[in-house]
Amino acid sequence: MADRGPHGRTERRSSGELESEVLAALWSTEHPLTPAEIQAEIGGDLAYNTVHTILRRLYDKGLVLREVDGRRGAYRPAKNAAELTADAMHEALDRGPDPIAALQQFVTGLSPEEERALRELLTGGLTGGVV
């Protein structure tokens, strides 16, 4: 029940958002994933057919590839554009404090004691306060 929002979150996920989630799942692992594995990863209440439709759309955009050898029906992410983006990102990061560092990043730097506190949070549950 923990992954259920008050307003029926899963119904409201748009197809664009689902595309992002499928793509994120494929990128998070080294192995190609079958539609069933993807379905299990991103929420069991998502119809198998929906996963198929999303994979086809990502395939048409050239963002995912079908695995030829190995497991039939498995997909892996296409690397070309992602590698170009990584190069551009590193170049921008190396150039100095501007311009990417000025962005709101998901997370920022940690001090040693913060690192310890966060590790405790992940291993020991959420009983104590973090700060």
Binding site: E17, S20, L23, A24, G62, N80, A81, A82, T85, A86
Partner: peptide, 15 residues
């Protein structure tokens, strides 16, 4: 950073 990615995709992954 968005160059080379098809329009209409929300998530851009950098390898």
């Amino acid at each position: 950073l968005c160059e080379g990615h098809p329009p209409g995709t929300e998530l851009i992954v950098a390898a």
